[in-house]
Amino acid sequence: NKFNKEMRNAYWEILHLPNLNEEQKNAFIQSLYDDPSQSANLLAEAKKLNDAQA
């Protein structure tokens, strides 16, 4: 299933973003579980936030 793979990839990438705190990571990961079809968008948002907090 495409979403499972996308979701897993997004999950791991978000988990390893160095500039997000636990609360931010948890919020993105919760959103992933709530709507796996948004994995790519959530990952993009997480990366933007990560870069902004660098």
Rank of each mutant, 00 (worst) to 15 (best):
W12F: 04
A27W: 08
D51F: 11
P18W: 14
S39A: 11
E6S: 03
R8S: 03
A46G: 08
P36A: 08
K47L: 06
A52D: 08
Q30I: 06
L43I: 02
S31K: 08
H16G: 10
F3T: 15
L49F: 15
N50H: 09
Y11M: 13
S37Y: 10
A44L: 10
K5V: 01
E45R: 07
A10D: 01
A10E: 01
L32G: 01
I14D: 00
A10G: 00
L49P: 01
Q53A: 06
S37K: 12
Y33G: 02
N26Q: 09
P18Q: 07
L20K: 00
E13Y: 07
Y33W: 08
A40E: 11
Q30G: 07
S39F: 15
E6M: 05
L42Q: 04
M7R: 00
E23Y: 11
A46I: 05
K5T: 00
A10P: 00
P18K: 04
H16E: 02
F3W: 05
Y33K: 03
Q30H: 14
N50E: 05
R8A: 14
L15P: 00
Q38K: 03
Q24L: 10
D35L: 09
A27R: 07
L42H: 07
N26Y: 14
W12A: 02
E45Q: 12
A52I: 06
M7G: 01
Y33I: 06
S39P: 15
P36M: 05
E22M: 11
L49A: 09
A40V: 11
N50M: 02
L20S: 00
D51N: 10
A27V: 12
L43N: 04
L15Q: 05
A54L: 08
E13V: 13
N19P: 00
W12M: 02
P18H: 06
A27S: 13
P36Y: 03
L32A: 01
A40N: 12
N1V: 02
A52N: 15
L32H: 00
N41P: 15
D51E: 14
L43V: 06
W12E: 04
P18M: 11
N9F: 14
N21V: 15
L49E: 08
H16Y: 06
E6T: 12
N19S: 12
P36Q: 06
Q24H: 09
E23W: 10
K2V: 10
A27P: 05
L17W: 02
L17M: 07
S39E: 00
I29E: 04
K25G: 02
A40D: 07
D51M: 11
E22H: 14
I14Y: 01
Q24P: 02
L32R: 01
A44Y: 06
D34T: 13
K48M: 12
L15E: 03
A44I: 11
Y33S: 02
I29D: 00
N1Q: 04
K48Q: 06
M7H: 02
Y11T: 02
N19D: 06
D35Q: 06
Q53F: 10
I29S: 04
N50L: 03
E22T: 13
K47Y: 04
N41K: 07
E6H: 05
E13I: 08
E13W: 08
I29F: 11
A10F: 02
L17I: 03
L32P: 00
N21W: 11
Q30P: 01
N1D: 14
L17G: 01
L49V: 12
A46S: 06
L49R: 09
I29Q: 04
Y33R: 05
Q38P: 10
I14S: 01
Q24T: 08
N4W: 15
K2S: 14
L20R: 00
L32I: 06
D34L: 12
N4F: 09
I29V: 03
K25H: 12
K48H: 13
L20G: 00
P18F: 06
Q30T: 12
N1R: 02
K25S: 05
I29L: 08
Q30Y: 13
D35W: 07
K5D: 13
N21R: 12
H16V: 03
F3H: 15
Q38S: 10
D35P: 02
N19W: 10
N19F: 12
E13F: 07
L17T: 04
A10S: 04
A54I: 06
N1P: 15
K48A: 07
A46M: 01
E45M: 11
L43R: 11
D35T: 05
A44M: 13
A44P: 05
K47G: 04
S31D: 05
K47H: 10
A52L: 08
L17V: 02
N21E: 14
Y11P: 00
D34I: 14
S39N: 03
M7P: 00
F3P: 15
F28P: 00
K48S: 03
E6Y: 01
A54H: 09
S37T: 08
D51A: 10
E22G: 13
A27Y: 06
N9Y: 14
E45L: 07
L15S: 04
Q38R: 09
N50A: 15
E6V: 05
N26A: 13
N4K: 01
N21L: 11
L32M: 07
E45G: 03
K2Y: 05
H16N: 04
K2Q: 14
L15A: 04
W12L: 02
K47P: 00
E45D: 09
E22F: 14
L49N: 08
K48L: 08
L49G: 11
K47R: 13
K5L: 00
S31Q: 10
H16D: 03
Y33D: 01
S37E: 04
M7F: 14
A54F: 04
L20M: 08
